[in-house]
């Protein structure tokens, strides 16, 4: 299985030369199996870059199919949806899978994103492709082509998001973006179970440990939370993800260095633009 980060940034897309190496797009991650099955996690602005490569292939002719998992519907995880060009081509088939936000529905939320005052698309019904929006309960096991996906609710400030454990080609990737545990060294049981023995842990690392003191309760992790979970859960590699909009390339380099100094597990920071073997 290969992984490619199309968007690595949390909260807000960042432009400019300080953000070129790691990238400034908001979250979107692609997984590809050896046999070519694809799965996309989240539809941040990075998904619009992914869309360009899809359009060069069968999606450009209306013959593509793809499943998208959503961790949650905060804007930085869905803002690529109205600009995801394969949605505009008749014949393409999509499934968008996610949990219902508290007190609301996944479909209703995405419909509201495309409400006439916000978007000229004026509703999901005007997407020319077939787009099926399906809610699951966190805790469900999903089988998507060759991917076996375990889902679980993880805490995110006053709410929660869905974490994923994705297995394919006998490899496991755990995706825990937008998560904040009761304390950085106390991951929830569900988060631990998702990460246990994973080959690759992609973890929220929005704050450096010093800045976290100011940001407690906002729903994001300090770098040390991922480092701790990686060690406790015995993962193969740790990837810092959901970079702060304020973190320049040079600052992210330092975060990686500081994290690596505290663990023997290989640590890197998610960077846009290349496929990596898991």
């Amino acid at each position: 299985m290969k992984i490619r980060y199309w968007g690595v940034r949390g909260s807000f897309a960042m432009c400019g030369k300080e953000f070129l190496r790691y990238g400034g797009n908001t979250t979107s991650v692609e997984l590809v199996t050896a046999a070519g099955a694809r799965l996309l996690v989240d539809l941040g602005t990075g998904a619009t870059e992914y869309a360009k490569t899809l359009m060069a292939g069968e999606f450009g002719q209306g013959k593509g199919t793809l499943t998208v998992l959503l961790s949650h519907t905060h804007l930085d995880h869905i803002q690529g949806l109205p600009f995801f060009t394969p949605f505009f081509i008749k014949g393409n088939q999509f499934r968008i899978l996610g949990a219902d936000p508290a007190g609301s529905s996944l479909k209703g939320t995405l419909q509201n994103q495309l409400a006439p005052h916000y978007s000229p698309l004026n509703g999901l019904e005007n997407l020319a492709a077939g787009v099926s929006i399906e809610s699951f309960l966190p805790g469900s096991e999903l089988t998507i082509d060759e991917f076996e996906v375990t889902t679980a609710a993880v805490p995110h400030g006053t709410m929660w998001t869905t974490g994923f454990r994705i297995k394919a080609d006998d490899r496991v990737v755990t995706f825990l973006s937008d998560v904040e545990y009761p304390a950085p060294h106390r991951p929830t049981r569900e988060a631990f179970a998702l990460a246990a023995g994973a080959d690759l842990l992609v973890h929220d690392a929005m704050h450096d440990d010093a800045a976290y003191a100011m940001a407690r309760g906002w729903g994001h992790s300090p770098v040390s939370a991922g480092v701790h979970l990686a060690g406790a859960a015995g993962v193969g590699k740790l990837v810092l993800f959901h970079h702060s909009p304020d973190a320049t390339d040079a600052q992210i380099d330092k975060l990686v260095e500081a994290a690596q100094a505290r663990t023997s597990i290989p640590v890197s920071a998610a960077a846009e633009g290349a496929y990596h073997e898991v």
Partner: peptide, 21 residues
């Protein structure tokens, strides 16, 4: 104001909990 009853509902709507914390 277009396609809605009040501005607060439209502009405030972007901070609904589904979209923003």
């Amino acid at each position: 104001l277009t396609a809605a009853d009040e501005l607060q509902q439209v502009i405030g709507g972007i901070t609904r909990h589904e979209f923003f914390p």
